[in-house]
Computed example of a mutant assay.
Amino acid sequence: MKKLLATTALVSVMAAPVLAETKIAGSLETTFADKETPTTGAQSSTGAALGHETKFEFVSTKELNNGWSSKLDMEVMEVAGDVADTEVTISNGEGLNLYISKDGGSFHDWGVVPGAYNARPGDNAGNDSAAMDANTIHGVHNFGIGYKTDFGTFGLRYAPDHQASNTAGDKTTGAGGGSGMEYGFTGSLGVDGLAVGLSQAIKQNEVSNGNDDAESTHYGVAYNMGQFAFGVERTTFSDKNNSDNNTSTTTNDVDYTLYGVTYAASDNVTLGINIAETDEDSKAETEETTQLEIAYNLGGATVAFSHQQTEDNGGTAGSDADAWSITYKQSF
Rank of each mutant, 00 (worst) to 15 (best):
A6N: 11
A33K: 02
T235K: 03
N252W: 06
T22H: 09
R157Y: 14
G193I: 08
K171S: 15
G155V: 03
Y117W: 09
F237G: 01
G187C: 00
T270A: 07
Y263W: 12
N268D: 13
D212W: 05
A159N: 02
G260W: 02
L271H: 03
N246R: 02
G180A: 10
Y183L: 14
A84Q: 05
G178I: 02
M225N: 10
N135F: 05
S325L: 00
T40R: 08
Y219K: 00
D128K: 06
S331F: 14
G105Q: 01
S248Y: 03
D73H: 10
V113D: 00
V11P: 02
G299V: 12
E87Y: 06
A131R: 06
F56T: 10
G272A: 07
W68Y: 15
V232E: 01
L98C: 06
T173K: 05
G111I: 06
I137S: 01
E78R: 00
F237T: 00
H138D: 12
G105V: 04
E87K: 03
G226C: 04
E78Q: 06
A229C: 03
D192S: 11
G26K: 06
S238K: 03
G111K: 02
E215F: 14
V269T: 08
G231T: 01
E182M: 07
T302G: 07
A323N: 02
Y117S: 03
N97Y: 05
V207N: 13
S45P: 03
T278A: 10
T262D: 05
